[in-house]
């Protein structure tokens, strides 16, 4: 709690938004006035007491879909970034530390993966294995693993070149110890900054996939696909697509406020 008291207002705002999103997502069935796929009335009803955000193109309650969307969207993004970062960062640091052929082999494998454009890779992989939600998490995690690997390797290489790593090696410290105690703390701020963005890129990636025809399976609600479903309305000045887009933006900004605060603390500056 002392931690929170020192937090700047932006970070507190971010934490509040994140907590609210998580809670709403967690208790979606209790909070939402209607079911996720339930057809409750005519399509495109205006905002009213009964349907605070109106209804969508099939007559489903927009607010309920936003609430269930929070659960699906944040859950997916958490899972995907979690996998990509834990695996990607570990491998990247390991490669930087080991160097030599281990580094070469891993870097080249990642190069192959990254050399195929991500959207194309996702389209192909999902067309092969089928666009179910677990498959999508897996595919996006694999795609994001590569840049995380590269970034953590690059950042770790700078650290590895420093004298204290040599000293630790001479002390006879093990690889895992070096990774966790010497390298990770020194590159964590770079990683955290990246994670904040990557987390939000997951929604956008899913939105782009639905734009190209493979996204989250209907009738499941998620914010990225909801932007796509209603996107054409914006060219006529209708604000409907701004609701899910705004939700994504709010969450992105909030998470990055938190990230900035952690970054600031990690850098140890007292400015």
């Amino acid at each position: 709690m002392t931690l929170l008291r020192t937090a700047p207002p932006t970070a507190i705002f971010g934490l509040l938004v994140l907590a609210a999103t998580l809670l709403i997502g967690l208790f979606a069935p209790l909070v939402a006035p209607y079911g996720e796929t339930e057809i409750v009335g005519a399509e495109y009803l205006p905002w009213s007491a009964e349907h605070p955000l109106g209804t969508d193109n099939l007559g489903r309650d927009m607010l309920s879909r936003m609430i269930f969307g929070a659960r699906n969207t944040v859950g997916l993004a958490l899972l995907t970034t979690g996998i990509a970062f834990s695996v990607g960062a570990a491998l990247g640091m390991f490669a930087a530390l080991k160097g030599g052929w281990v580094d070469q082999l891993m870097s080249r494998a990642v190069d192959v993966l990254m050399a195929v454009p991500p959207l194309i890779l996702a389209l192909m992989l999902l067309a092969i294995i089928g666009p179910s939600i677990p498959n999508m998490v897996g595919v996006i995690a694999v795609i994001y693993l590569a840049p995380v690997f590269r970034l953590s390797r690059a950042a770790a290489m700078n650290v590895v070149a420093l004298d204290f790593i040599g000293a630790a090696r001479l002390r006879g410290e093990g690889t895992v110890w070096l990774l966790r105690r010497e390298i990770l703390p020194n590159i964590s701020s770079t990683l955290v900054a990246e994670a904040g963005l990557r987390f939000c890129f997951v929604f956008l990636f899913i939105a782009a996939l639905s734009f190209l025809g493979i996204g989250i399976q209907p009738p499941t609600a998620d914010w990225g696909s909801m932007v796509k479903e209603n996107a054409t309305l914006i060219t006529f000045g209708d604000v409907t697509p701004l609701i899910p887009a705004g939700a994504i933006a709010l969450l992105t900004v909030s998470i990055n406020f938190i990230v900035d605060w952690m970054l600031h603390r990690a850098s140890g500056l007292k400015s």
């Binding site: 963005l197 939000c200 890129f201 929604f203 956008l204 939105a207 782009a208 734009f211 990225g224 932007v227 796509k228 996107a231 054409t232 914006i234 060219t235 000045g237 697509p241 887009a245 994504i248 933006a249 969450l251 992105t252 900004v253 990055n256």
Partner: peptide
């Protein structure tokens, strides 16, 4: 910057077109 990237590309494009 964050707001600009937190919207899907096609949506940014639609807004610019509008």
């Amino acid at each position: 910057a964050l707001s600009a990237i937190s919207m899907p590309e096609f949506f940014v494009a639609y807004l610019l077109i509008l």
